[in-house]
């Protein structure tokens, strides 16, 4: 989705967990999935703090 986001003018975009589960990964165990989500959200928050 990053090329699409850039094409329409999004200025802060990060690759996430995929089309069908952007903030998750059904392949992982529930604990690992939560950890994955937490890291992703922290990365999103860090991106909000970056100058573009």
């Amino acid at each position: 989705m990053i090329p699409v986001a850039k094409e329409v003018g999004s200025l802060r975009a990060i690759a996430a967990g995929g089309i069908v589960s952007p903030t998750g990964n059904p392949e992982l165990s529930p604990e690992k999935e939560k950890q994955f989500r937490r890291e992703l959200v922290l990365r999103a928050l860090a991106t909000l703090q970056q100058a573009v």
């Binding site: 903030t23 999935e33 989500r37 937490r38 992703l40 959200v41 928050l45």
Partner: peptide
């Protein structure tokens, strides 16, 4: 939408946000 329907936090990360 199957995996998002099983756990909608996979679509909108509310659980993590509440935690933070």
């Amino acid at each position: 939408t199957a995996s998002a329907n099983l756990d909608p936090n996979r679509l909108v990360p509310l659980d993590t946000m509440r935690e933070l």
